[in-house]
């Protein structure tokens, strides 16, 4: 399709202006407010015990959620692409559910399920606190990040087909060897992207986590909860900007790290 030059330029301007106002301006504004009083102030603000604890907790949740999502995400994707079983359509829909359900609903339902008086509430009396503890936050984050690895790996599995795996089996490779040597390297790009999205979402998750966290500064606050409590409860707006910038920095670092890693691997 050919469009006239003015129309093309007009379209471009509108698209750029849209992106600028919705994405660039807010981010730049936060960065500007964060670094306006100087780098030292920023560092001080993110080195308070509460901030360090929040950072550690966020990273801990990521460290637990990512491996679980990788293992179960790849297994689910393999089942969805290769498997033939009744109820496959239902499974497809269930995988997408976390995209559709609001995180706050997830939080509420987790309390219903695991909280005192819930179906699984009994575990609390055994000394294993799920709600208002780390397990609750991990489960909430798992729920909202579940689709990423599955949905990134699935199309790659479709695309590579089964011929390479069949070839490996005729050459004597067991199913396990075939998975490690053929399937996994073939899906590594999709998997990487799924992991990046999982990390970003796990770091940024707020609605589901706030429902199941006890929210004590220095104990059970993630970075997002820290931003929230500093702004709303402490009226420490600068502290909220600084923590938000730290959060963004982590996400950008994840993205960069994964890109560099894959570039290195693919040019080997």
């Amino acid at each position: 399709m050919r469009t006239s030059t003015p129309a093309r330029l007009g379209l471009r301007t509108v698209a750029l202006a849209y992106l600028f106002v919705l994405v660039a301006v807010p981010i730049v504004l936060i960065l500007w407010r964060t670094f306006e009083p100087g780098l030292g102030t920023f560092v001080d603000s993110v080195r308070t015990p509460a901030a360090i604890s929040a950072l550690n907790l966020s990273l801990l949740i990521v460290a637990i959620v990512v491996p679980l999502n990788v293992v179960f995400g790849v297994a689910t994707a393999l089942a969805l692409v290769r498997g033939r079983f009744p109820g496959k359509g239902v499974l497809q829909a269930v995988v997408d559910l976390p995209f559709a359900v609001s995180p706050i609903v997830v939080g509420v339902s987790l309390i219903l399920l695991w909280g005192a008086g819930g179906w699984f509430g009994g575990v609390e009396s055994l000394g294993f606190q799920v709600i208002f503890g780390l397990p609750g936050m991990v489960i909430a984050t798992l729920f909202v990040t579940l689709p990423f690895v599955v949905r990134e790996v699935e199309p790659v599995l479709h695309e590579i087909g089964t011929e390479q795996e069949q070839a490996a089996s005729t050459l004597g490779a067991s199913s396990w060897q075939t998975f490690w040597r053929i399937t996994l390297p073939a899906i590594r790009w999709g998997l990487t992207y799924g992991v990046v999205l999982t990390i970003a979402r796990a770091l940024g998750e707020f609605g589901a986590v706030i429902m199941v966290s006890s929210g004590f500064p220095g104990v059970s606050q993630t970075l997002t909860l820290l931003v929230h409590s500093r702004y709303i409860d402490d009226h420490n707006t600068y502290g909220a900007y600084a923590a938000a910038t730290l959060l963004m920095g982590l996400a950008v670092a994840t993205l960069l790290g994964m890109t560099l890693l894959d570039r290195k691997r693919s040019t080997r």
């Binding site: 390479q164 069949q166 070839a167 089996s169 005729t170 004597g172 490779a173 067991s174 073939a186």
Partner: peptide, 20 residues
């Protein structure tokens, strides 16, 4: 007996090259 243990070599129409 599974293909691994049949002592065969198989060549596919679309090569099935291990791309990585």
């Amino acid at each position: 007996i599974p293909p691994q243990k049949r002592g065969i070599g198989f060549v596919f129409q679309h090569y099935a090259a291990f791309k990585h």
